[in-house]
Amino acid sequence: MSQANLEIRRISAHPGPVPGSGVKRDLKVAKLVDTTTCIGCKACEVACLEWNGLAFSDTTFQNSYQTMPETAWNFWNLIKFNEYEPESGNLMLLMRKDQCMHCEEPGCLIACPADGAIVQYVNGIVDFNQDQCIGCGYCITGCPFNIPKFSPTSRKVFKCTLCSDRVSEGLEPACIKACPTGCLHFGTKEEMLELGETRAHQLRTESGFAHAGVYNPEGVGGTHVLYVLHDATNPEAYGGLPKNPRVPWTVWLWKRPLKWLGNLAMAGGLIGMFVHYLRFGPKIVEEDDVKEGNEEPREGKQP
């Protein structure tokens, strides 16, 4: 939900300037998820449901510890479990906390046609306003992470808010609060990147994970949820984290060049027809056969 005391940077489908853009300073925030110290306890899943007042829903057993196959409209935070065998041969149980990545370049917001249904705050959080949402689902198409989920009962789309209500009051998100191992961190993006890089360096030099690194994909301008991965060259192994996520190119084509070409063509068409009418006018028929109804027209076409 929209938080009035967070400055808004971008508004979906909004004609004209954005009220909070460039007005106040605010720190960029980020959540850091260290997958190497996650124990899969799911305390973050429960804390998310508790804080956001979401109902407990049925779990789906799929021969793993995972609660359900993917996040749901009323389940925004899901630990994805994956049994992974790297080249070294040591079986690894990879666990990644899946939720909205809060992209700097959010595909959902770009695709959204409803004024104000999606906002991006100056601090980087991308938030849905269900009272403005029209339930079209374009955000589902725009998202490269499969995050926005449609609620069949309210016919609106929901996702993780990064606890914008808590953050606006200076608190950390509920999932961070609940994590018992300290694998979840929250702070400014700068701090989180630094912390993540320090941890990745430690993994590379002291723990034998030569490809350890921080996941902060550039294709979407970076994200406000960062991961430390044992193997940053293979993010797909972590429950399908895309290697190079981008706003889909058809969404970009539709919202940028096609929109402007279409608007120009429509305006040009209207102007063209008006000018045509001024220059050539109507094709006149001399209607004298109202009186002499049965008379055959004598002449041919009139110019």
Partner: peptide, 11 residues
């Protein structure tokens, strides 16, 4: 339509 109209546009 009138006959003239018909002859004018769709002869």
């Amino acid at each position: 339509v009138s006959r003239k109209w018909a002859a004018r546009f769709h002869r």
